[in-house]
Write a protein that binds this DNA or RNA. Sequence first.
DNA 1: ATACGTGCAAAGAGTTTGCATGACA
DNA 2: TGTCATGCAAACTCTTTGCACGTAT
Lengths: 145, 145
Amino acid sequence: MNVVVEESISLLRRPGIRMTQQRLAIMEYLTTSNSHPTAEEIYRELNKKLPNISNTTVYNNLNFLKEQGLIQELIFGQSCSRYEWRTRPHYHVICTECGKIDDFELPELNRLEEAAQRESNFQISGHLFELYGICTECGQEPLQS
Amino acid sequence: MNVVVEESISLLRRPGIRMTQQRLAIMEYLTTSNSHPTAEEIYRELNKKLPNISNTTVYNNLNFLKEQGLIQELIFGQSCSRYEWRTRPHYHVICTECGKIDDFELPELNRLEEAAQRESNFQISGHLFELYGICTECGQEPLQS
DNA sequence: ATACGTGCAAAGAGTTTGCATGACA
DNA sequence: TGTCATGCAAACTCTTTGCACGTAT
């Protein structure tokens, strides 16, 4: 078990919260995978070690970890959500060909909320910024059928 | 019928494309409503004048108008999409309380794609920027049950 | 007259819910 | 031992698909 999960376990060691095999496995997978997995991907992967694990349990735990602030749900279109372990704030570039996601930081954007606050009548509390493009792998391929 | 719809009709006057009552009504509603309606809202509203209109027709036409580049689909989470008639590029502020959407412009963001291009390995083709906050109406209300 | 568009019902994907059983603290 | 979590099946929401009928051009 990795140190990130161990730290989170001690955070979660409270009355009313239990650590189960399944929850541990999901946490471990999310902390070690760097691929922004979907619920389905997590389910299929964990199924190899825990053949009885159910889709419901994956969803339950993703919602639980989200409520606890340990993970972030990444929502793209009507298709399925992706999830990532929460580390420091960053943004995502999404490949429009293969769906691959990369992280990047852009500290300049922090100032933009103030500018936007002046533009709008809303009391701004947050923002979403995503880039779309073609990843290196998809860009190398010839564009013919 | 308003002038925006009239202009679009002449653009669509091509072999293989037909103008129907339903399509016209959807176009008219999208050009006059400034509320970023959902497919369901469009359906319910048009149902008053065209009692036989179906949900399928609304979706069909929204997809058609989207392919023609006349409207923009706004996707928020797993919940239903919203649609707006395409005018000039702008961004959205979404109220986290009531879901209300306002438009605003922020030309500074255009330069950010270049900065992001340097940060990432992707060939950047576009971006998404959304703000979240509390609208004036929701902000006025006392925060008690 | 010729298809394009419509409208009904059914399918589909992703996620949540109800509930009896299992297992962590 | 109490009750939180699991896992199965069913429900749910939003959207798309199949197909016969209607209707714009």
